[in-house]
Computed example of a mutant assay.
Amino acid sequence: MKPVRLTFLPALLMFAVFLAGCSAETETAAEKPAPVHIESGDECHVCGMVITRFPGPKGEVITEKEQVVRKFCSTKDMFAWMLQPENVNRKHTLYVHDMSQTEWDSPDDTALIDAREAFYVAGSKRKGAMGQTLASFATESAARDFMKEYGGEVLAYKDITLEHLSTEMPMGDMHKDM
């Protein structure tokens, strides 16, 4: 009987090693990519405007399969792209600026946060690249503080719809200072 038990021991050890290897691969695959710095010449994926020439929060999407980075001059443009039927159900990695941690006129990329965990203020008096924008914040309390000063409505990522993006764009001011 002892020789039979010893023959199963190596197979059992191999199976344990296999399971450990599989779990490590799952953890590696689940890691999300880090945000990418927005360079001075980068153009918005939706409108083609130079991203850094405009105030307000920006956005970026890193596609799930190809790991392609798409950058946006405003959170409004990022949501316009994300809410398209071909993108809405994908698990892309999304980043936006935490505007409680950076300047409105020139957001710093060290303040990029997970867009799905952020809170947004829609309809405020603050303008971004595309006129009214969705001001993004890491906490609901920071979003509410911003709303008290500039107006608007606080929303979670899941609550944003195309209707929140359908504000008029002041075309006369869009290309000022270019």
Score class of each variant (00 low, 15 high):
Val61Trp: 10
Ile62Val: 14
Ile62Trp: 11
Thr63Asp: 10
Thr63Ala: 10
Thr63Glu: 14
Lys65Ser: 15
Lys65Val: 15
Gln67His: 15
Gln67Ala: 15
Val69Pro: 08
Val69Ile: 15
Val69Ala: 11
Lys71Ile: 00
Lys71His: 02
Ser74Asp: 03
Ser74Gln: 09
Thr75Val: 15
Thr75Cys: 13
Lys76Phe: 02
Asp77Thr: 07
Met78Lys: 08
Met78Glu: 14
Phe79Pro: 07
Ala80Asp: 14
Met82Cys: 04
Met82Ile: 01
Met82Gln: 12
Met82Thr: 05
Leu83Gln: 08
Leu83Gly: 06
Gln84Met: 06
Gln84Glu: 15
Asn87Cys: 05
Val88Phe: 06
Val88Gln: 12
Asn89Lys: 10
Asn89Ala: 06
Arg90Ile: 08
Lys91Cys: 04
Lys91Gln: 13
His92Trp: 15
His92Pro: 06
Thr93Cys: 02
Thr93Leu: 09
Leu94Tyr: 13
Tyr95Met: 08
Asp98Gly: 04
Asp98Met: 02
Met99Asn: 04
Ser100Gly: 01
Gln101Thr: 02
Gln101Glu: 12
Gln101His: 07
Gln101Ser: 11
Gln101Cys: 03
Thr102Ile: 02
Thr102Met: 04
Glu103Pro: 00
Glu103Lys: 06
Asp105Ser: 13
Pro107Ser: 01
Asp108Glu: 13
Asp108His: 09
Asp108Ser: 12
Thr110Lys: 13
Thr110Ala: 12
Leu112Tyr: 03
Ile113Val: 14
Asp114Thr: 04
Asp114Gln: 00
Ala115Leu: 02
Ala115Val: 00
Ala115Lys: 00
Ala115Gln: 03
Arg116Asp: 07
Arg116Tyr: 09
Ala118Cys: 03
Phe119Trp: 14
Phe119Ile: 03
Phe119Glu: 05
Tyr120Trp: 11
Val121Ile: 02
Ala122Thr: 11
Gly123Gln: 01
Arg126Tyr: 11
Gly128Arg: 01
Ala129His: 04
Ala129Ser: 14
Ala135Thr: 00
Ser136His: 07
Phe137Leu: 10
Ala138Val: 08
Thr139Val: 05
Glu140Gly: 03
Ala142Arg: 03
Ala142Val: 05
Ala143Val: 01
Ala143Gln: 01
Arg144Glu: 15
Asp145Pro: 07
Asp145Phe: 04
Phe146Pro: 02
Met147Gln: 15
Lys148Met: 09
Glu149His: 07
Glu149Lys: 12
Glu149Val: 06
Glu149Asp: 12
Tyr150Cys: 04
Gly151Gln: 05
Gly151Met: 00
Gly152Ala: 03
Val154Glu: 12
Ala156Ile: 04
Ala156Asp: 03
Tyr157Asn: 08
Tyr157Gly: 08
Lys158Gln: 11
Ile160Met: 10
Ile160Thr: 11
Thr161Glu: 10
